[in-house]
Design a protein around this nucleic acid. Structure first.
Length: 494
RNA sequence: GGCCCCAUCGUCUAGCGGCUAGGACGUAGCCCUCUCAAGGCUAAAACACGGGUUCGAUUCCCGUUGGGGCUACCA
């Protein structure tokens, strides 16, 4: 046996609590989570709330809630703790400061007194004449005494990393080997003049201290990576492996945002999407199971088949239509569907006074095939159960057809003879009407549908009739039984 | 301006020098059917452009074009 010397897999997901969790962000989290779980690794949730202005605690709670709903779990995080905490950047400021001091001591970083205004002016001027500009390193050569003197007068300063010469290279799991020349990298600011850590520095300190082995994140950070590698080097910490994921775009090819409609996990949940369907679809953004046939890949299979190194490099456009298709597939087979339909019906006040369970399963059986999401059920049910004679007035094909009306009258007489119309009764009546009137097929069924629903389309009659009869029997408000409906229809048009 | 990343049907993708360029969603037609859906079958639909390398490029290299990111005391 050869012993495995690879370091343990530790992957982190680091959302910012500045708003609701976004599907683009969620995809990064999903890929990171899948990778961690596939390698028996540790999945860490870290909250990047260094932006005090925009970060809010309630958004953090929403992140926990949405991730759990989505089906992800984590081993370390602000809510569950862990050996490398704290897991909120806002609680780690002293850690950043301490390591910055150490870098200063080690001569890898230096204090810079250049004012932001002056530097911004230089940069703007360079840009105006089309010249390249980077921080010239003016403060690199300040003597220790001078630094002490200027600091003691209260002159504000930042801490910058001294960028070495040469090249930075790293092997990205989705982009392959990537290299940058340090010639174009300004000495990055580690600590701001207000004493706070900058993002690029804080992530590195956190990832290094948390022994993160794989940094999986959006590719908007690809250009930041060389800076970060330099910081790892200065800190004397091993550089993790990186995987930079492309962004998720809206239908107009622009980055997905609110104006594209639903983009937050919460919205998809509320719209009645099943979490496993959303997970399946999101995994398909940049990855595919390959081969031929279905792309319905449930979470268990995702765990087995997903490959981070096979994720596409180019950005993917979010397609609600395909998400709907995937959701329909899960809606039909999930054991959770009934419970969710029940909630939706309760929310819409469509649960009858008695017999709720039977009612819900009947509604599911009748309507689930016709919807993209659970959310559509209450409205569809309303439409299906509605019976308005006024709607029928446009059905001249039936109303003006004496044969059809005769059929309906006979149908009404049959119904009048019984209390309830069971589906077997309906079968019997129909076959009798068929032989009496000589009508069949469309001529036979269409008039009956119109008399029963006042509409020319809807679910199959063998599903619709039990639904209407049950609704009437259970006392769903405003729903008449078949007998009353046909009688009313005959009274109006017959 | 500089640096970096990306580029196959409308969309998501398979492809890793030789394929009738495959699948999925969507679209169209047909079938099923009382209707609308669903479901089944079929069809149309792509290698951004120009140079190389090679016996041979969707595939490798270089440009161009078009997207995107970074170049902040934002993350």
């Amino acid at each position: 046996m050869v012993s495995d010397t690879r370091p343990p897999v530790r992957v982190r997901y680091a959302p910012s609590p500045t708003g609701l969790l976004h599907v683009g962000n969620l995809r990064t989290g999903l890929f990171a989570w899948l990778f961690a779980r596939q390698h028996d690794g540790v999945f860490i949730l870290r909250i990047e709330d260094t932006d005090r202005e925009r970060s809010e605690r309630r958004f953090e709670d929403h992140i926990f809630r949405d991730l759990k709903w989505f089906g992800m779990d984590w081993d370390e995080g602000p809510d569950v703790g862990g050996p490398f905490g704290p897991y909120r950047q806002s609680e780690r400021q002293d850690v950043y400061a301490r390591h910055a001091e150490a870098l200063l001591e080690a001569g890898r970083a230096y204090r810079c007194f250049c004012t932001e205004e002056e530097l911004t002016r230089q940069a703007a001027e360079a840009k105006r004449v089309g010249a390249f500009w980077k921080y010239p390193g003016s403060c690199r050569s300040l003597t220790r005494d001078e630094v002490v003197r200027r600091s003691s007068t209260g002159e504000p300063s930042v801490i910058r990393l001294e960028v070495r010469e040469g090249e930075v290279r790293f092997d990205d799991m989705v982009h392959g080997e990537t290299r940058f020349s340090t010639d174009v990298i300004s000495d990055p600011i580690l600590m701001r003049s207000d004493g706070g850590a900058t993002y690029n520095y804080a992530v590195v300190v956190d990832d290094a201290l948390m022994s993160v082995s794989h940094v999986i994140r959006g590719d908007d950070h690809l250009s930041n990576t060389p800076k970060q590698v330099l910081i790892y080097e200065a800190l004397g910490k091993p550089v993790p492996r990186f995987a930079h994921l492309s962004t998720v775009l809206g239908p107009d090819q622009a980055r997905l945002s609110k104006r594209h409609g639903a983009t937050s996990v919460a919205e998809f949940r509320e719209a009645g999407y099943l979490p496993e369907a959303l997970m399946n679809y999101i995994a398909l953004l940049g990855w595919s199971p390959g081969g031929e046939g279905s792309e319905v890949v449930p979470p268990e299979r995702l765990l087995a088949e997903f490959r981070l190194d096979r994720v596409n490099k180019n950005p993917a456009v979010f397609d609600t239509g395909k998400l709907n298709y995937i959701n329909r597939q899960y809606l039909r087979s999930s054991h959770r569907t009934a419970g969710l339909v029940r909630e939706a019906l309760e929310g819409a006040g469509q649960i009858p006074p008695s017999g709720a369970d039977d009612w819900v399963s009947l509604v599911v059986e009748t309507l689930i095939g016709g919807v993209d999401t659970i959310r559509e059920i209450p409205a569809l049910l309303d439409t299906v159960l509605a019976f308005s004679l006024d709607d029928a007035s446009g059905e001249s094909e039936v109303i003006d057809d004496e044969g059809a009306m005769d059929l309906i009258r006979r149908f009404g007489q049959e119904l009048a003879a019984r209390e309830r119309l069971g589906f077997d009764d309906f079968r019997g009546i129909v076959s009798e009407l068929k032989s009496v009137t000589g009508r069949k097929g469309r001529d036979l069924f269409h008039p009956l549908r119109v008399a029963l629903t006042a509409r020319s389309s809807g679910p199959e009659l063998d599903k619709l009739i039990p639904l209407v009869e049950t609704a009437a029997a259970l006392g769903v408000p405003g729903v008449d039984g078949c007998r009353e409906r046909v009688a009313a229809f005959v009274a109006r048009h017959g």
